[in-house]
Computed example of a mutant assay.
Amino acid sequence: MTRTLLPGILAMAALVVASNILVQFLFGQWLTWGAFVYPFTFLVTDLMNRAYGASAARRVVLVGFAVGLACSLIGTQILGEYGPLVTIRIAMGSAIAFLIAQLLDVSVFSALREGRWWRAPFASSLVGSTVDTALFFSIAFAGSLAFIEPGNDVSWAGEMLPLLGAGPVAPLWVSLAVSDWMVKLGLALIALIPFRVLTARYLAAA
């Protein structure tokens, strides 16, 4: 079974590593390049779920969790211009958000797998992405959770600004979260194309 899951394991590990690297590079005012890579981890999870079932998908998720945790631990030891590249809050937020969101993705997909082909991957990715975004940004940047890492000053993330530069006034981290969620939603729609193509090929070969 492990050999069968190897493509999914390698894809998940590669996406997690790539997103951890690319998150260091800004794309515009509200995003990083990592935002365009990470959402495809949900595609990998859904493909494994469709092809091999929920248990296999969870195994791939656990590999991604372990790889992400390793990346975060390495990042805490690398000093950038303003301190460690990865703070304890970011490491915690990343790990907790990934594990809970991906496992939710597996559960939602499994519940809807007998419906129309697009319903399970889209609904599971939507739920997973929403939970992932909410957990990560609140744990990493919300002022009310400053007790997690008192020595880490994230007051910059609480600066009150118009949402996405044009909406109602909200903390900066909320704009970052909303823009990240919007990208995830868009990519969840785009990912339906490779999901359909790859699952059709799998079913034809089975």
Rank of each mutant, 00 (worst) to 15 (best):
residue 44 V to K: 06
residue 22 L to T: 00
residue 98 F to T: 04
residue 69 L to S: 05
residue 171 P to Q: 04
residue 172 L to W: 10
residue 182 M to H: 07
residue 35 A to H: 04
residue 84 P to N: 07
residue 50 R to L: 13
residue 190 I to H: 02
residue 107 S to P: 12
residue 152 N to K: 11
residue 64 G to E: 02
residue 120 A to K: 06
residue 31 L to Q: 02
residue 201 R to G: 11
residue 63 V to E: 01
residue 98 F to R: 06
residue 196 R to S: 12
residue 106 V to K: 06
residue 159 E to C: 05
residue 186 G to E: 00
residue 77 Q to R: 15
residue 176 L to V: 15
residue 110 S to Y: 13
residue 67 V to I: 13
residue 192 L to G: 00
residue 75 G to A: 06
residue 68 G to Q: 06
residue 69 L to C: 11
residue 2 T to M: 13
residue 17 V to K: 05
residue 67 V to R: 06
residue 120 A to L: 07
residue 116 R to G: 09
residue 57 A to S: 05
residue 131 V to L: 14
residue 66 A to M: 09
residue 92 M to Q: 05
residue 10 L to I: 14
residue 199 T to G: 00
residue 112 L to Q: 08
residue 65 F to S: 07
residue 5 L to N: 00
residue 83 G to H: 11
residue 107 S to R: 13
residue 39 P to T: 07
residue 72 S to W: 03
residue 36 F to H: 02
residue 74 I to R: 01
residue 119 R to Y: 09
residue 76 T to A: 06
residue 79 L to M: 15
residue 27 F to R: 14
residue 86 V to F: 02
residue 43 L to M: 01
residue 15 L to I: 15
residue 146 A to F: 08
residue 115 G to S: 14
residue 21 I to H: 09
residue 1 M to H: 09
residue 91 A to K: 03
residue 117 W to R: 13
residue 57 A to T: 03
residue 174 V to Y: 00
residue 43 L to A: 10
residue 168 P to D: 05
residue 17 V to M: 07
residue 190 I to R: 08
residue 205 A to G: 10
residue 171 P to R: 05
residue 18 A to G: 00
residue 147 F to S: 06
residue 201 R to L: 08
residue 22 L to W: 00
residue 198 L to R: 06
residue 139 I to M: 08
residue 33 W to V: 05
residue 51 A to G: 03
